[in-house]
């Protein structure tokens, strides 16, 4: 895919709460509420398959994504398929579990560094699987949980690591951006009432 096609239109995103998963969840109560988390790392990649680059701060744009990221630009591996991909998050706790080989699905532990998992934000203390159909704040930015992320074979091939099965059900959350702004590692994350 040519990253440099002139006049390429911005990518089509499905609004997070309009996604089939988000639209069902948003109408129901439930999920973890008494938590407070923190943003550990921000990563973007300029194009499909490019190595992720860590940022000290990032600009989130409503309806679009993180400035400079492949999904913001429409150059991502999955950009041709409209979806909720403005910002993707993953839990540090899931990465820690992989490094302990918990559950023991593989021959041994897998070290999946924040620069390797290809989600934009690595967060701690945030129950991502409870945030489909929920609004939450990262610093001054407000995100909406659209659908759970699903591990892909593409990542497994790119990394040369058998991460597909170990990431099942803890592969993170794909979000839309309701209110844009600047985010930085260390930003507090909390649930907002809908």
């Amino acid at each position: 895919m040519n990253m440099h096609s002139p006049g390429r239109p911005p990518p089509k995103m499905i609004e997070a709460f309009a996604h089939p998963a988000g639209s069902v969840a948003v109408a129901k109560d439930g999920g973890a509420t008494q938590w407070r988390g923190v943003l550990l790392h921000i990563h973007i990649a300029p194009g499909a398959s490019y190595e992720m680059e860590e940022l000290a701060e990032a600009e989130c744009v409503t309806g679009r994504g993180i400035v400079g990221d492949r999904y913001y630009n429409g150059f991502g591996t999955y950009s041709p398929k409209p979806d909720v991909r403005e910002v993707t998050l993953i839990e540090q706790e899931a990465l820690d579990a992989l490094s302990r080989n918990d559950p023991p699905l593989q021959e041994g532990s897998i070290t999946l560094k924040p620069s390797d998992h290809r989600r934009n934000l690595t967060v701690q203390g945030v129950p991502l699987n409870h945030l489909v159909g929920r609004r939450f704040r990262v610093g001054d930015v407000i995100l909406r949980g659209g659908r759970l992320n699903f591990p892909c074979k593409y990542l497994e091939e790119l990394l040369g690591l058998p991460v597909f099965l170990p990431l099942y059900n803890r592969s993170g959350l794909n979000c839309g951006i309701e209110r844009g702004g600047i985010i930085r590692p260390g930003d507090e994350i909390e649930l907002l009432s809908t």
Binding site: G47, S49, T77, E157, L158
Partner: peptide, 9 residues
């Protein structure tokens, strides 16, 4: 298909 990481060297 085999995906390969692209690096800025």
């Amino acid at each position: 298909m085999t995906a390969r990481l692209i690096m800025k060297l």
